[in-house]
Simulated scan of single mutants.
Amino acid sequence: MGLTIGIDVGGTKIAAGVVDEHGAIIARTHRDTPADSVDATAAAICDAAAELIANHAVEAVGIGAAGFVSSDRSTVLFAPNLAWRDEPLGARVAKELKIPVVVENDANAAAWGEFAFGAAKDVEHMVCITVGTGIGGGVVIDGELLRGAHGVAAELGHMRVVPGGHRCGCGSRGCFEQYASGKALVREGRAQAESGSLAAVQMLSVCGITDAAELTGPMITDAAVQGDPCAVELLDDLGRWLGEGVASLATIFDPTLVVIGGGVSAAKDLIMKSAVQAFEKVLPAKANRPHAPFTLAELGNDAGLIGAADLARRPAVSR
Rank of each mutant, 00 (worst) to 15 (best):
G245K: 12
R28D: 15
I306H: 12
G6Y: 04
E59Q: 12
V317S: 06
V93P: 15
A27F: 09
E104S: 13
D211F: 05
G23R: 03
A42Q: 07
D222S: 07
A213E: 14
H166R: 13
V162A: 04
A191Y: 11
D39H: 05
T210W: 03
I209P: 01
K183C: 09
T256N: 15
F115R: 04
A149V: 02
N288T: 07
A94F: 13
A42P: 07
T4M: 01
L3E: 01
H291F: 08
G169W: 05
T12S: 10
E244I: 11
L82R: 13
D237G: 15
S71V: 13
A54Q: 05
K268E: 11
D39C: 07
C128H: 10
T29H: 13
I53C: 06
G263N: 08
E96V: 13
T4V: 01
A116N: 01
G227P: 00
V9K: 00
V201R: 09
M203S: 06
P218Q: 08
V258N: 15
D310Y: 14
R73W: 06
L77G: 04
V18Q: 05
A27C: 00
V206I: 12
P315Y: 04
P218S: 12
E96Q: 12
A57Q: 06
R319L: 11
A278S: 14
G263P: 01
M272W: 12
E59S: 06
A224V: 08
K281N: 15
W112P: 01
E280C: 13
V123R: 07
N288Q: 08
A50Q: 05
P100W: 02
A316V: 08
E124S: 11
L204D: 07
H158M: 01
G137S: 06
A107T: 00
H30T: 14
S197P: 05
A120E: 06
G189L: 12
F279L: 10
A109Y: 09
L97T: 09
G261I: 03
G113P: 03
V9C: 03
I99G: 10
E144R: 06
A154V: 00
R240W: 08
E124H: 06
I260R: 04
I53W: 02
H22W: 02
E124F: 08
M203P: 00
A297N: 04
A109C: 09
L52D: 14
S274H: 15
R73F: 10
G143S: 02
G239L: 15
A35D: 07
A111S: 11
G148S: 00
V9S: 08
I14C: 07
A275E: 14
G189Q: 07
S265A: 15
R28L: 09
G62M: 14
D228W: 03
S274G: 12
P34K: 03
K98G: 05
F117Q: 08
A91I: 14
R85W: 08
V103C: 15
V38Q: 11
C230A: 15
S248P: 02
G136E: 01
M126P: 09
G143H: 01
E280G: 14
L270R: 02
L299C: 11
R190F: 03
L257Q: 00
H56Q: 15
T216I: 07
E214Y: 13
L270C: 05
H56A: 09
G169K: 10
E214F: 10
S37V: 02
V76W: 00
T295P: 05
A184T: 13
I220M: 12
N288V: 13
N81W: 04
G138R: 00
I306Q: 08
A292Q: 14
H166C: 09
A57L: 10
R319N: 10
P34F: 02
G217H: 12
